[in-house]
Amino acid sequence: MVTRPVPETFAADDFALREEEHGPCTGRAHFGHDPISTAERVGGVVRLTYDAYGTDGSPVTELPADQVRGLVSDAEQDVRDFLGLAGARAGQHLPTHAAPVTAALARALGLVPSP
């Protein structure tokens, strides 16, 4: 399977949406593919498709764009809250390594740790 990155789209607070395109499957050993989820805006609605390239009539969810903004904002806050809790837990259980562990987790999550 060939994977090539598609340019990132940035929204408020540096939240990045990324999509990867997968080339055609070749060879008989390949029995399926990972789902490729997509989000597209159609007027005031965002259409979320679980597996855009699947042939099985993938589920589609349509939400008002304003609701999607709120859901994304809530998810961003949840990730920041998780990082804070993980950092506190690392401080309790890995006091000498808490800072680098928390910083590595923040990088993996695409966040900057809170002071």
Rank of each mutant, 00 (worst) to 15 (best):
T96G: 11
P7D: 04
A98R: 11
G43I: 04
R89I: 07
D66R: 02
G43P: 01
G110P: 09
V112Y: 07
C25H: 15
E19D: 03
T61C: 10
T49P: 02
S73P: 01
L94V: 13
V42A: 01
F82P: 05
P95I: 08
A90P: 14
Q67A: 10
E76G: 02
A39S: 04
P35N: 08
A88H: 11
G44M: 07
P115H: 12
V42S: 06
V42K: 06
P5R: 10
P24E: 15
E76K: 00
H97I: 05
L63T: 07
V46G: 02
T102F: 04
P64I: 00
E76Q: 02
G84W: 11
A16M: 06
V6C: 02
S58E: 00
L48E: 01
L71P: 15
E76S: 02
H30K: 10
R89G: 14
L94W: 13
T26S: 15
G70P: 03
A52D: 10
A98P: 07
A12M: 08
T102I: 06
P100Q: 04
P24W: 12
D14V: 00
R107E: 15
S58M: 01
E19Q: 15
T102Q: 05
A90D: 13
G57D: 11
V42E: 03
G44N: 12
D66L: 04
T96N: 10
G91S: 10
T26Y: 14
I36H: 09
T55K: 06
E19H: 12
G70D: 01
A98E: 09
E62Y: 01
E19N: 12
R18P: 02
E8P: 13
Q67E: 12
A103K: 07
V2T: 11
D66W: 05
Y53N: 14
Q92D: 15
P35F: 04
A75D: 13
A104C: 06
G54M: 04
R107S: 13
L105E: 03
E20I: 09
R41P: 00
L71E: 06
D81N: 11
S73L: 06
L17V: 05
L83H: 09
R4Q: 11
A39V: 05
L105A: 07
D51M: 03
V45M: 05
T3L: 12
H33S: 12
E62F: 00
A104T: 06
A106Y: 07
P35S: 08
Q67V: 00
V68M: 03
A52N: 08
V6D: 04
V79G: 06
A106R: 01
H93W: 13
S114H: 14
V112M: 05
H33M: 07
G70M: 08
A106T: 02
A65S: 07
H30V: 15
P113Q: 04
G27C: 08
D74A: 14
G110M: 02
M1G: 12
A104H: 10
D78T: 09
P35D: 05
A88G: 03
D74H: 09
R4D: 07
V45W: 02
L63F: 08
T26L: 15
E40K: 14
V68Y: 00
Q67H: 06
G57S: 09
T102D: 14
G23C: 11
P35M: 05
V68S: 01
H30T: 13
V68L: 04
G43T: 08
D74T: 05
G70E: 02
G87T: 11
E62K: 06
F82N: 09
T38S: 05
F10D: 05
V46M: 03
D56F: 08
